[in-house]
Amino acid sequence: MRKYELYRETVLSTTMLEAWDFFSNPNNLTNITPEEMDFKVISKELPRHIHNGLIIDYVVRPLAGIPLKWKTQICAVNAPHSFVDEQLKGPYAYWHHEHTFEEKNGKVLMKDKVTYSPPFGVLGRLANTLIIRKKLNQIFDYRTQKILEIFKAD
């Protein structure tokens, strides 16, 4: 299985605790996902903040309006510095998303590192080259824009 990586850094004009409060709330993911993806958290009674072992179910429409179910588990929580979400079931053969937060000069440096593998072997690798990589970059571009609006970052 070939794995690919997406990496982003964003500087937030906020405190570590405010950043953690926002990003550790699973319901806020909807606010930073492109509207055309029709992203919905479908888990019932989610806590206000993530914890190790939390499982979250979503429905997302990444391509052509086709709904896909996605189940992730939150692991490796080190509040307020980092957490990881991993796909248990969904559109990827493998999905591992590390979120880290560091104080830097009175601001917060947020890092996202996504390691993923598309399904379907060689066809998935071709789809990654033609579609998936571009779509993920668009999603994270949108996400960065929304986060900068929310936190008035530099």
Rank of each mutant, 00 (worst) to 15 (best):
K3D: 12
Y4Q: 07
E5C: 11
Y7R: 14
E9R: 14
V11N: 00
T14C: 15
T15E: 15
T15N: 13
L17A: 12
E18W: 03
W20M: 01
W20F: 06
W20N: 00
F22L: 04
F23W: 08
S24Q: 01
N25S: 08
P26R: 14
N28L: 14
N28Q: 08
L29N: 09
L29A: 07
P34C: 04
P34L: 03
P34M: 06
E35A: 10
E36T: 04
E36Q: 14
M37A: 10
M37R: 07
K40D: 13
K40I: 09
I42R: 09
K44L: 13
K44E: 10
E45T: 11
E45W: 07
L46E: 00
L46M: 12
P47F: 05
R48A: 13
R48I: 13
H49P: 04
H49F: 12
H51G: 03
N52Y: 06
N52Q: 04
L54M: 10
L54V: 13
L54W: 01
L54A: 13
I55Y: 03
V59F: 07
V59W: 05
V60R: 05
V60T: 15
R61S: 00
A64V: 07
I66P: 01
I66C: 00
I66Q: 00
I66E: 08
I66R: 11
P67C: 06
P67I: 05
P67D: 09
L68Y: 00
K69H: 12
W70P: 00
W70F: 06
Q73G: 12
I74F: 00
A76Q: 14
A79G: 10
P80K: 05
H81E: 08
S82Q: 07
F83L: 08
F83A: 00
D85R: 05
G90D: 01
G90Y: 07
P91Y: 00
Y92L: 04
Y94I: 02
Y94S: 09
H96A: 01
H96V: 00
H97N: 04
H97V: 11
E98N: 14
H99N: 07
F101C: 11
F101M: 15
E103H: 01
N105E: 14
N105V: 05
G106A: 01
K107M: 10
V108S: 15
V108P: 02
V108Y: 05
M110Y: 10
K113I: 15
V114F: 10
T115H: 00
S117Y: 02
S117I: 10
P118W: 03
P119A: 15
P119I: 12
P119F: 15
F120Y: 02
F120H: 01
V122S: 03
L123P: 02
L123W: 14
G124N: 01
G124C: 01
L126R: 09
L126T: 11
A127H: 08
T129D: 05
I131Y: 01
I131H: 03
I131S: 03
I132K: 02
K134R: 12
K134V: 14
K135Y: 10
K135F: 06
Q138W: 08
I139Q: 01
Q145D: 02
K146N: 02
L148S: 12
E149F: 03
E149H: 09
E149I: 09
E149W: 01
K152M: 03
